[in-house]
Amino acid sequence: MAFNQLSKFIVALCLIQFISGGYSATFTITNKCSNTVWPGILSNAGTAQLPTTGFALQPGESNSIAVPASWSGRLWGRTLCSQDATTGKFSCVTGDCGSSTVECAGGGAAPPASLAEFTLNGANGLDFYDVSLVDGYNLPMTVAPQGGTGGNCTTTGCVVDLNSGCPSELKVTASDEGVACKSACEAFGDPMYCCSGAYATPDTCKPSSYSQFFKNACPKAYSYAYDDGTSTFTCAAADYLITFCPVPPATSVKSANGQYPVAVGVSSSSHSRTPNVFVFATITLLAAFWRLLPIF
């Protein structure tokens, strides 16, 4: 009988592994901006899209998403979005993904946009994550591991509002107000800034005065294509809190003369974990399998 129970237990474990595909993470996306943000999510090539690829977050709201093992992709915030009353088409001034609806139908963020990039369960079982301003900037954002181990489980991102101080040749405006800041590559198309052509290696592509504008303000964020050494972080078995317009440290506020987006406080209850849909599915199927499994 003990052998029979052990056999059932081993089969059950295999079933759990098969269904869940291993570790999965929860992304909690929080909007602390004073205006609505529409997060967009795009899976990398060869990775299935998540059940949701875009939605609205009102000021102070959070949304939690279960992300399967080995997922890789990027997440960003869209701003100044609206739906055309005549055509019904949904569009955004910054971060638009080219979709006619709130959901992003496979399209990436139109630059400039601040990007959070993830590769879960990568080399040595570590998650790799970063916040990139290589394609420009539109919102302050941070990525904070929750409960991870090993690696370098560090909060990264950019808490500074760069839109007001953006160089005029990079600034994107709407109603005479700065709403985003282009990368030099996007603004000028020069291979030297794009790390392309003769500049497509770490030895030939170096920081520019424009990339240094981003790096000086946001030391942990990617400022140009080969900014790996100070901008990529790793963690294992973590959930992640992605925050738009995080409240900057007091010292940062002082150094930037207080020029930050108005933040809206979010209660701790809004950060609570939501049940993982993959776990529920596994438990349900496991229970049915257990009842049907014959006793040898």
Rank of each mutant, 00 (worst) to 15 (best):
Met192Pro: 00
Phe118Gln: 08
Ser183Ile: 08
Ser132Arg: 14
Pro246Thr: 06
Val102Glu: 02
Thr149Leu: 00
Ser72Trp: 00
Gln49Met: 09
Ala225Pro: 08
Asn63Lys: 05
Cys166Phe: 13
Thr47Ser: 09
Thr274Leu: 09
Leu241Tyr: 06
Phe213Val: 15
Lys220Asn: 12
Ala281Met: 07
Leu6Arg: 11
Leu42Asp: 02
Ala281His: 06
Leu286Met: 14
Leu120Ser: 10
Asn4Gln: 11
Leu13Gly: 14
Gly77Glu: 10
Leu285Tyr: 02
Val253Lys: 15
Gly229Met: 06
Pro112Leu: 10
Pro167Asn: 06
Ile19Trp: 09
Thr201Cys: 07
Ala217His: 15
Thr204Glu: 09
Asp135Lys: 02
Phe214Cys: 09
Ala144Lys: 12
Leu13Met: 13
Leu42Phe: 07
Gly197Asp: 04
Asn276Trp: 04
Val159Tyr: 10
Tyr260Trp: 00
Pro167Trp: 11
Ile295Phe: 11
Glu117Ser: 15
Phe280Ile: 09
Phe18Pro: 01
Ala256Phe: 05
Ser72Glu: 02
Pro145Met: 04
Val160Ile: 15
Ala105Gln: 14
Asp135Ala: 09
Phe278Lys: 11
Val134Cys: 05
Arg74Ala: 13
Thr282Asn: 02
Pro191Gly: 04
Tyr224Val: 09
Gln49Cys: 03
Cys205Val: 08
Arg78His: 08
Phe278Met: 14
Phe188Trp: 10
Ala200Phe: 12
Gly77Met: 05
Leu139Asp: 04
Phe118Thr: 04
Met141Phe: 02
Phe18Leu: 13
Asn152Gln: 05
Thr173Ser: 12
Ile283Ser: 13
Ala69Gln: 00
Lys220Trp: 06
Trp290Asp: 11
Ala45Cys: 12
Asp127Thr: 07
Glu177Thr: 15
Cys194Asn: 12
Gly229Phe: 10
Thr26Gln: 11
Gly229Asn: 14
Pro275Phe: 09
Ala174Thr: 12
Phe27Asn: 04
Ser269Leu: 07
Thr284Asn: 13
Asn31Thr: 11
Ser175Cys: 01
Ala288Trp: 06
Leu15Arg: 09
Asp239Cys: 13
Pro140Ala: 08
Ser43Tyr: 01
Lys89Ile: 14
Ala221Pro: 06
Cys185Ser: 12
Ser223Asn: 07
Cys218Leu: 09
Phe90Ile: 00
Asp203Met: 07
Tyr199Glu: 11
Ser24Leu: 12
Ser183Pro: 03
Gly98Val: 03
Leu15Gly: 11
Ser183Lys: 02
Ser72Asn: 07
Ala123Trp: 08
Pro248Phe: 15
Cys81Arg: 01
Ala200Asp: 15
Leu133Met: 14
Asp135Ile: 03
Cys205Tyr: 08
Val253Ala: 13
Cys235Gly: 08
Gly178Leu: 09
Phe213Tyr: 15
Arg273Ser: 15
Gly107Ala: 03
Thr243Trp: 01
Ser34Tyr: 08
Gly73Ser: 06
Cys245Tyr: 01
Thr284Gly: 15
Val102Thr: 04
Ala105Lys: 13
Asn124Met: 06
Ala12Leu: 03
Ala237Ser: 10
Val11Tyr: 01
Ser91Ile: 04
Ala200Lys: 14
Val37Phe: 06
Ser252Arg: 03
Cys194Glu: 14
Thr36Ser: 11
Pro294Met: 14
Asp239Gln: 12
Lys182Phe: 00
Cys92Phe: 06
Pro145Gly: 06
Thr232Asp: 10
Asp135Gly: 04
Gly157Asn: 07
His271Met: 13
Thr234Ser: 14
Asn257Gly: 15
Ser175Leu: 07
Pro39Glu: 01
